[in-house]
Nucleic acid binder design. Sequence first.
DNA 1: CGTGCATTTTACCGATTGGTCAAATCATTG
DNA 2: CAATGATTTGACCAATCGGTAAAATGCACG
Lengths: 200, 200
Amino acid sequence: MPETRIQSRNRAAILDAGLEVFSRYGFRGATLDQIAGEAGLSKPNLLYYFQSKEAIHRALLLQLMDAWLEPLRDIDPAGEPLDEMLDYVRRKLALSRDYPRESRLFANEILSGAPHIDDTLASTLRDLVDGAAALIADWVAEGRLAQVDPHHTIMSVWALTQHYADFDVQVRAVLDTDDPLRGAEAHLTKLFDRLLRPGA
Amino acid sequence: MPETRIQSRNRAAILDAGLEVFSRYGFRGATLDQIAGEAGLSKPNLLYYFQSKEAIHRALLLQLMDAWLEPLRDIDPAGEPLDEMLDYVRRKLALSRDYPRESRLFANEILSGAPHIDDTLASTLRDLVDGAAALIADWVAEGRLAQVDPHHTIMSVWALTQHYADFDVQVRAVLDTDDPLRGAEAHLTKLFDRLLRPGA
DNA sequence: CGTGCATTTTACCGATTGGTCAAATCATTG
DNA sequence: CAATGATTTGACCAATCGGTAAAATGCACG
């Protein structure tokens, strides 16, 4: 039995509402009533589509992790190292701009100790990062990137790009512009260019 | 009436327990029972020392903001620009190392939209940042620092240093070392040196 | 139109939430 | 030791939590 139009519409509404609420208050701080209200459904109706509060949260985390790691996968080993790295930074920043709620959802999960994605974190993510780190290490060894610690460099990209989504309130309070992400791209490009550009 | 020994001991225990719980689950996700249990007190006894859940949270945020902005205040306008900036980075990183719970508490507050510190964020913090940014702008104009956006540079320091505290779980999952902060200091020093060191 | 299934609602459950109150206990000082 | 104020406890409250059951409603299709 395929999914009916009404099913897919309501499921989507619930996931969107869940994303809104979970990303602001974390798993424990979010309530089903809040999510139901946001989705325009009654609470029992929510639970007709998802078995539990955790099921909604799990579905959100699952669809998140994939999209979140994609920019890392898209680094081309055959490309020009510096360009590849700067493109990676820009792709990651674009994610923060276009999916700030997903970014906050992830941040909340990590802040609370990542109780729902421990295994994924230790396996999938770890493998992907190690792969990218090895690639960077090669580029460094070949003198096509400046000397850096690959793992810390990758984490710097995450930290800097996610910051603009997760700390949006603070960023706006400090920056006094309605589009903080514009200046961010120029700044981060410059930062990573100077960090990674191989010496003459 | 001065504070008795038993009062200061219990208040301290409550604040410590509150810090532990609030920093993990945010304001809404934390419960008084959890905090009471962590503090080794009964819930009514908690409320004998603090009027409400919010009062505990407010006390924590208050004592946090001051310590948190101190490194920024300690930048010496008369010092050598690059050294001052790198020292600032190291001081901020030290805060993340020594007070990870405070860092997470702050992160949780910002993630949920900073409902409890909006005014402070818009005034105190803003003024301090603007002051430091002006100083950096001067140094850049004098050619004693490389060309950077001062505001974004300050936020980069925050993003990178806080990341090691707030995303500790992820950092450890990716790095596979029991002391991630050691490598972090070397990496961040290098990163900001290359970003800020004035060209020849 | 009516039958059968998908959907939604109403009413409710026990557990937990933040918080109160009065009684009991403790500690200090005269 | 007595007494007085500081501290702690147990019993309790209304509201809200995640979740359930069953009845009511909507909808598609013969």
